[in-house]
Amino acid sequence: MKSAHAKHEWKSNTLPAMVMVGPVTLCMILLVAIPLIYVGVMSFCSIDQYYNVVFKFTTQNHLRLFSTDYLKIYGQSLAIAFLTTLFCILIGYPFSYLIARTKSKRKKLLYMLVIIPFWTNSLIRIYGWRTFLGTNGWLNTALQFLHLTSEPIDFLFKQGTTVLGMVYCLIPFMILPLYTSIEKLDTNLLEASSDLGAKKISTFLEVVLPLTAGGIFSGSIMVFIPCLGYFFVSDILGGGNSDVIGNLIERQFQSGNNWPLGAALSIILILITLLLVKLYQKMGGDMESLGM
């Protein structure tokens, strides 16, 4: 009895608990909660004639969010994100399958191929694409040298170029969860399926795909959401022809100098993200594989 009592006393002592949880809570408050509240409050502020933020309540910023120009860009942004996700799945799935099913030392090498670009700044890598694809870039030089084309082809500043850059930047986020889910797949199940008379394609559709759907799902979320905000990709490769929501926000904070409107736009992005994550959860997605 006595020891049980002592244990209880220890539990009710909040000091050790505070020491353990305190730093994390403090970080969350300082780095997540306060900035979020700040953005929320900011979105209801107005600006004066000199573009200074003044604490005068207005819903003007939120109403502007529904202007046709903005709605068009939301749609465009969602379309780019959708295409990017689709290409990431189409390219990422076979590649992940290959890494997960390779037994030899090549497995590590293939895995590193995905990880290493992560260590370089993505801005620099995107500029690399611009150099590569430009009218005087390597690709055009090579094509002209081979006499495949007489005039340089204009690769840059198209929606497709933005999607290419997005796929390039975000594909590791698709490959890693896919790899995990394919790796977990029990090879006995594939053998059982084949043993029971299923051809390779049936085995894929009946066994492999359903059992790795979770990986596709979490990979899609991890690609789709950042895609809405990666303004620098559409800036550098899209040249203003393929803005995403991130571009709108960036512009209000930089050249537009309208912080309250930028804050209101940020809230749209947050809402879309929450909606998608909620949807993901509803459909039985595993939060842990999103790193949450």
Partner: peptide
Amino acid sequence: KEPYERNVNTVFQSYALFPH
């Protein structure tokens, strides 16, 4: 012949039932 073309079937040690 591929496994799916053979007129033999296997009971696996780990059962290998399709979990889904």
